[in-house]
Nucleic acid binder design. Structure first.
Lengths: 329, 329
DNA sequence: GCCTGTGATGTAACCGGTTACATGTAATAT
DNA sequence: ATATTACATGTAACCGGTTACATCACAGGC
C-alpha cells in the first residue's frame, strides 16, 4: 500500500502538499496539484482512514443497536439508517443486543474504543447513566431512554385507541388485548390506549389483557388462554403485528373464523401482515421514515454537537385489512 | 479520555510497561503490574483501538454485503455472521448493495480504507478482478464469484429436483417454474434442476418457465402469465419462497385452490413461508449455519492468511407444508 | 572479582495521516 | 528602495498505541 510519503516523493513535494490536494482545503498551485494527482494515480494511492481517524478523533462510523435483526420490524429500520449513513459517507455497524443490557453496554464500550461517532439505540433497559460517560451522541428509537436523550417514536397511545375503537365500530362486544413486555414503554402506551377505550365498559375485566412479550409464540399461547378464559371475546388488539400473527395461528387451531367470529388488529405495519390469510388490519408506523429521521438527527448532532434536539413523534396510519372486514358490517 | 501516557505517568512507569500489562504478552513484575492496574482503574482508561489498528494494520472489523437486508432471507444470515463476529471480537459492518456492482465496489473500497479485515459478499455481479487488488480475504455466500474465492452455498440442483419430483409424486401432471434472475448462479441451478426433471416429459414447453426475478411482485405477474398461457398447470416450483408467496397471491386472485387444483413449492425456508395460508412447502436451506460457516471461514483466513479454503456446500431439507398437501394423495 | 545470562523496564521509532508554524518568493504599497 | 502582504510550500509535532532495542540490576559460574 502506498502512503502519503510515497506520493510526496513521487511528486517531488512534501506530505503537507499532498494532504492539501486530497483534502482540497487550501490553495495549491495548479501545476503542483497536477503533479500530485499524477503521482496518486500512478501509485494507486488511497488514504488510510485509520490514520486519519486517529488524528481527527472521529471514525465516520455510526452504529445501530437493535434487539434482533431477525425480528421483521428491524430490517426496514436498519435499511433506512444504512441508507442515510451511506449517503453521508458514514459506515454502518449493526449490533444485536437480544434485549440484554449487558450486551448493549459491551457493544457501546467496544465501539466507543473504535471511535464510533454515534449510536442509534432501540432499548428498554439502558439508562442515561450508561451512556453519558461515553461522551458521544445517542438517539433513541422506538423507545424512550431518558429526557436527555433525543428520541424518535410514534404516537402509540393514539394508534392503540384508533385500533380498539375500530373493533368497537365494526361491532365487537368484548375486546381482549395481547400486550408487549411491561418494561418496554411503547408496549405500555399501547396497552394504556386499549385501557383508555375499554376500561369503562361493563364487560371489561383485567384478565382480558394477556402478555405476549412481543413474540409470536408467546402470543399464540396468550391467545389460547384468552379463548379459554373468555370464550365470547370477539375482538383482539395485539400490541404488534408479530403477536397478531401468533393470535391468528391460535384462532386457526381453535377453529375460530377471522374476522367474522373474532376480529384482530395488530400494530407496526410490517410487510408480513399483508401476507397472512386473512391479512392483518394494523396501525402502520412509518418505519423507514423513523429510521431515516433518527439517522439524520444523529449525524446532525455529530457534525455540530451543540445542536439541541427535540423528540420527534410520528403519527401512525390505520390500515384496514381482512382481519377486521366483516361481511355483516 | 486518558491515554496510555497518562496511565504511565500515574503509575510511575513507562508506556511500554503499561502496554505490556494490557496486552499480557511479556512478564511484568507483579507489584508493577498492580500499580498499572490501579492507575488504569483510577483514570478509567480504555485503549484507543484506532491507534492500535494503525500500527497493527488491522481493524477487527468484518463486513457483510447483501443485496437488501429487507429481503427476508438476509436478516437470519446477517444475524449469524454478527453472532460469530461478536464472539470473535470483531465488529460487524452491514452494507446493502441493491445488486449494484458499482455500490458493491464502492463499499469495498471505502471499507478497505478503513482497514476492514475481511468481507462476506452475496453478489452476482462482482468479479475476481474487483476483489483481488483489495488484498483482503473474501468469502462468497449463496452465490459463487470465482474458483479463487471460497464460497458457502447449498446444493441448489438437488433441492430443485427434490421439489419438482415431489410435485410429480403427489400427482401433478403439468408443472411450471418461476425462475430467479438469469445472472444469479443459484437461480440458474434451480432452474436446471427443474429442467432436469421435467424436460423429457411430453407436456413440457419452454414457456412454462417464467422469470420472477426473485421478487414477490414480479412472481405474481409471472404466475398470472403462466395461468393464462397454460390454464391446466397443476404444479408450480418457485425459485424462492418470496416468489412462491407471489404465486400464491396470483392464484388466490384467480380463484385457484391451493393445493388441490394447483400445488406450490418454494425454496429457501424463510420463516415467512410458514405463516401464509396455505403454508408453503419448501426446500429449506440451513441459513443460519451458512452464515456461521462463512463467518468462521473468513475469520480463520484473517487469522492465518495462508489457510487454503475449499468451497462448502450444504445439503437442503425438503419441508412439506400445506401448499402441496392434497386431500386425494 | 569478573564474566555471562536473565528478567524487568525504559527510550524512541514507527504506523500514516493532519496541521501549526516557519520559510521563501513575488507582488503591491509607501 | 523598503516595508507589507499574500500565496505556495515545507518541516516537524501530533494523534495514541506497539515494539525493537538498549539499559540496568542481580544471580550464578568460574
Amino acid at each position: 500500500m502506498a502512503t502519503i510519503r510515497d506520493v510526496a516523493k513521487q511528486a517531488g513535494v512534501s506530505v503537507a502538499t499532498v494532504s492539501r490536494v486530497i483534502n482540497k482545503l487550501e490553495r495549491v498551485n495548479p501545476d503542483t496539484k497536477q503533479k500530485v494527482l499524477d503521482a496518486i494515480e500512478k501509485l494507486n494511492y488511497k488514504p488510510n482512514d485509520v490514520a486519519r481517524s486517529l488524528y481527527q478523533r472521529k471514525s465516520k462510523m455510526i452504529a445501530l443497536i437493535v434487539p434482533d435483526i431477525t425480528n421483521p420490524y428491524f430490517p426496514e429500520l436498519a435499511r433506512a439508517v444504512e441508507d442515510v449513513a451511506n449517503r453521508s459517507d458514514y459506515t454502518f455497524v449493526l449490533c444485536n443486543s437480544d434485549d440484554s443490557e449487558q450486551k448493549e453496554r459491551q457493544y457501546m464500550q467496544v465501539l466507543r474504543q473504535k471511535q464510533v461517532d454515534g449510536f442509534i439505540v432501540v432499548t428498554s433497559t439502558l439508562a442515561y447513566e450508561h451512556i453519558k460517560d461515553l461522551n458521544v451522541p445517542v438517539v433513541a428509537l422506538d423507545r424512550i431512554i431518558d429526557r436527555k436523550v433525543p428520541a424518535v417514536t410514534v404516537n402509540n397511545n393514539d394508534g392503540a385507541k384508533t385500533a380498539v375503537q375500530h373493533l368497537l365500530d365494526i361491532g365487537c362486544k368484548r375486546i381482549a388485548h395481547i400486550s408487549g413486555p411491561d418494561d418496554v414503554d411503547n408496549a405500555m402506551q399501547r396497552k394504556q390506549g386499549y385501557l383508555d377505550v375499554v376500561s369503562h365498559y361493563e364487560w371489561f375485566e383485567p384478565g382480558m389483557v394477556q402478555n405476549g412479550d412481543y413474540h409470536m409464540d408467546q402470543s399464540e399461547q396468550a391467545m389460547m388462554k384468552l379463548l379459554k378464559a373468555y370464550p365470547d371475546i370477539d375482538g383482539v388488539f395485539a400490541g404488534n403485528d408479530l403477536m397478531a400473527v401468533g393470535a391468528l395461528k391460535a384462532l386457526k387451531k381453535s377453529g375460530k373464523k377471522v374476522p367474522d367470529e373474532i376480529s384482530v388488529v395488530g400494530f407496526d405495519g410490517i410487510s408480513l401482515g399483508e401476507l397472512t390469510t386473512p391479512s392483518i388490519t394494523t396501525v402502520k408506523q412509518p418505519i423507514y421514515k423513523i429510521g431515516e429521521q433518527a439517522a439524520r438527527m444523529l449525524i446532525d448532532k455529530i457534525n455540530d454537537p451543540t445542536t439541541e434536539q427535540e423528540n420527534v413523534e410520528y403519527d401512525v396510519t390505520f390500515m384496514e385489512r381482512e382481519s377486521t372486514k366483516r361481511k355483516e358490517g
